[in-house]
Write a protein that binds this DNA or RNA. Structure first.
Length: 719
DNA sequence: CATCACGCTGTTTTT
DNA sequence: CAGCGTGATG
């Protein structure tokens, strides 16, 4: 039975107003820690309480987990029926709709979803088919290409525009990349594939061109709520517009100061445009903070005070007292790791629980050094962000088998499976896939491929596995179990950290238990991928210190937060104009990090160069936005000179100064043109990059580094 | 055509 | 460290 809630008792005035406003468009500007989730939870409860059927409420959040937690809370404090509210991400909504309506767009409803690495693989293979790489110097690598294509899709801008603004260093290849984009789209259509970007693009297309679908959705979801609105992009804003065009019952909640997803097209200006989209929109600001002490809020307020464009708000709290945030120059990165771990140990010996701490950073690898030091000092930790469980090679390997069982046409997965066999590489795997398509043979008949030769044994084994699996309708667990059994010898060959990876596979078997169909299992893994084995809820987390990227720490809080920061530093010359924009984003990132802290905040930065390579602080010193803070907001300190030790990598592999590029100027042999491939007796093959005057050419050798500097030049021959 | 050993390089953040 | 290209070897 429903509990009776006294809203006035549990909500402040602004929150109450948001909860009680049920009809019409509503924009809630919710500062960090201002009870945003609470407000959403109570609003769901209130809607249900006043008789709105739960199924007609749609709660769009940033992760499905966030939605599930909110609905759980609403159910437990108000009405059990809150569990029937539809909640999820834009992507999961799109997926659900498209599984039943993709045919209106000329797709098969059984389309396969491409994850990031599949996308990279397809793009890579297209690049090879195009033979773009031929004669091209410094053609972007596949992950960069994928970033470009994906971002262009999310921003809905042309390749040239995007590249002009953000990838100046590759601008000369814009025509090829544009062609690549076209080929990629074509490939996806031919093979019934959709990537993450397609899901939302196609949902919008469906809504705008297919009146029937729009009507069905708009009728079903009479009340729409969007959380983290600052992280939506233009396409998602359009989806919102279409969904609520008829009823205008749309509530968007967000904080422009916390927009940290511009790299995937998110545009916090959506928040400023909401009132234009819905002119009668009511605007509510939540400014009282229930998380941090006032000194911490002074810092975050000052940070956002520097921003160019914002909804001005000033966070305040009743917790007036507290320690002033500290900014600590820790010297080098190894010293920083030592400082943080020692400090935490110290606090723990005074009775603090290890769960009270978190260390936040911008990129996964920024904590490498710290992880080693923590292990050395015997401090247990869990890490969020960085590499994904799903992206681990061994997981992808196993899933590839499942995918071909579900969708026999999935060429990407076939390639992966085949290349795991002895004596089968890129060439043969492609040939086999082509042959399979041509002869329309079943999975268990691949052993009949005429060109097998030495690979015959392996093919037979694979065929019998797939034959056995498709012969009967096994439960997902059983299928995964058999695949893992087949795969284990391969795993052993392929990786030397065999035991760790083997454990992951056992987790995968356990996860499959929750599903009745393999296809749903796969869809779920792609749309709500677990971060790690620990996050899958299978491994007990125990008492651990939390390490996390700022992005993965959104919405969470800890009593004591350390932020380890590398200054806004790395911008290739061709991107120098991106500097301003990047600093704006870094500032918001720091804002999100700082607002995670309840009681104490310690910002650490390495003030001294460590002389190491890529994962060290290339840029050192203090970020400009910290320097610009007014006096008294932070307290500066130094921990230099304590616990100096060589970095892990210096111990493992000493690094000298390295030369980065090596273009040799040399005498020009007869008839040599730009783009010609040439051979150098000492350095192997290179490409003529440039003609210098009449007699000389510049030749670029890849990977010939230091040798070139020492040996001097000789005559080149054309290849 | 597959595989191996070697050398060189390096923005990141996620649905 | 991981990813990638290269050139030598089956």
């Amino acid at each position: 039975m429903a509990n009776c809630i006294n809203y006035k008792e549990v909500l402040n005035a602004s929150q109450l107003e948001a909860v009680m406003t049920q009809e019409g468009p509503l924009l809630v500007i919710a500062g960090a820690g201002s009870g945003k989730t609470r407000t959403l939870v109570y609003r769901v409860a209130r809607l249900v309480e006043t008789g709105v059927p739960p199924e007609s409420i749609l709660l769009l959040t940033f992760t499905r987990k966030a939605a599930a937690e909110m609905l759980e809370r609403a159910a437990s404090l108000a009405d059990e029926r809150c569990r029937f509210v539809s909640g999820g991400t834009f992507h999961s909504l799109a997926h659900k709709v498209l599984r039943g309506a993709a045919h209106f767009l000329g797709f098969d409803n059984n389309f396969t979803i491409l994850d990031r690495s599949d996308m990279e693989e397809v793009i890579q293979s297209l690049v090879q088919d195009m033979t773009i790489g031929r004669g091209a110097i410094r053609f972007p690598k596949r992950s960069t290409l994928t970033n470009i294509v994906s971002k262009a899709a999310n921003l809905e801008c042309g390749i040239e525009t995007l590249m002009g603004e953000e990838y100046g260093q590759f601008l000369e290849y814009a025509p090829q990349i544009k062609k690549l984009q076209g080929l990629y789209a074509e490939y996806k259509r031919d093979n019934q594939l959709m990537d993450y970007d397609d899901l939302i693009v196609f949902l919008r297309e469906l809504l705008s061109t297919h009146e029937q679908t729009r009507m069905v959705l708009s009728d079903q979801y009479r009340f729409v709520m969007v959380d983290e609105y600052q992280d939506t992009n233009k396409i998602q804003a359009d989806i919102i517009k279409w969904l609520s065009r008829d009823h205008h019952n749309i509530m968007a909640v967000g904080d422009d100061a916390q927009s940290i997803y511009s790299f995937r097209g998110a545009n916090y200006r959506n928040m400023f445009e909401f009132p234009m989209l819905f002119p009668e929109a009511k605007l509510i600001k939540l400014e009282q903070n229930y998380r941090s002490t006032q000194p911490i809020l002074n810092l975050t307020n000052a940070l956002m005070g520097q921003a160019q464009e914002k909804y001005t708000k000033c966070l305040f709290t009743e917790r007036k007292d507290g320690e002033i945030p500290r900014v600590v120059d820790t010297g080098t990165e190894p010293e920083q790791a030592f400082f943080v771990s020692t400090k935490i140990k110290e606090e723990m010996s005074r009775g603090r629980s290890i769960r009270d701490f978190a260390v936040l950073f911008r990129a996964g690898y920024h904590s490498f050094e710290l992880e080693v030091e923590l292990a050395r000092q015997g401090i247990p930790f869990v890490k969020y962000g960085g590499f994904k469980f799903m992206e681990a090679a061994h997981i992808k390997d196993v899933l590839a088998y499942l995918r071909v069982i579900v969708n026999r046409d999935d060429g990407v997965s076939w390639g992966r499976i085949l290349r795991m066999l002895k004596n089968i590489g890129p060439g043969k795997s492609q040939a086999i896939i082509a042959w399979m398509k041509e002869s329309a043979c079943s999975a268990s008949e691949i052993a009949a491929w005429p060109g097998a030769g030495k690979a015959g044994e392996g093919l037979k084994g694979l065929a019998s596995l797939l034959g056995a699996l498709s012969a009967r309708d096994f439960a997902p667990t059983a299928v995964v179990e058999q695949v893992v059994k087949y795969y284990k010898p391969i795993l052993q060959e392929k990786f030397d950290d065999f035991p760790r990876r083997e454990k992951d596979l056992e987790q995968l078997v356990l996860m499959a238990e929750r599903y009745r169909k393999i296809s749903t299992f796969l869809d779920d893994l792609l749309l709500e991928p677990p971060n790690s084995a620990a996050e899958m809820g299978v491994v007990h987390k125990g008492d651990c210190l939390t390490l996390s990227t700022v992005h993965s720490a959104k919405g969470l809080e800890w009593p004591v937060v350390f932020v380890i920061w590398v200054m806004e530093g790395y911008f290739p010359p061709a991107r120098a104009n991106a500097h301003e924009e990047a600093i704006e984003e870094e500032r918001r990132l720091m804002y999100v990090a700082a607002t995670r802290a309840k009681d104490r905040l310690i910002l650490c930065y390495p003030g001294r160069e460590t002389g190491r390579s890529w994962f060290s602080s290339e840029a050192r010193g203090l970020s400009s936005f910290i320097q610009a803070l007014p006096h008294g907001v932070v307290e500066h300190a130094s921990s230099r000179g304590r616990g100096v030790r060589a970095s892990v990598w210096e111990r493992v592999m000493p690094l000298g100064k390295r030369e980065s590029r090596f273009i040799a100027t040399t005498e020009k042999p007869e008839g040599l043109k730009k783009g010609d491939r040439v051979r150098h007796p000492a350095f192997g093959q290179g490409v003529v990059a440039k003609l210098v005057g009449e007699e000389k050419v510049e030749v670029l050798f890849k990977n010939a580094g230091r040798k070139l500097l020492h040996l001097g030049y000789t005559i080149l021959e054309k290849v």
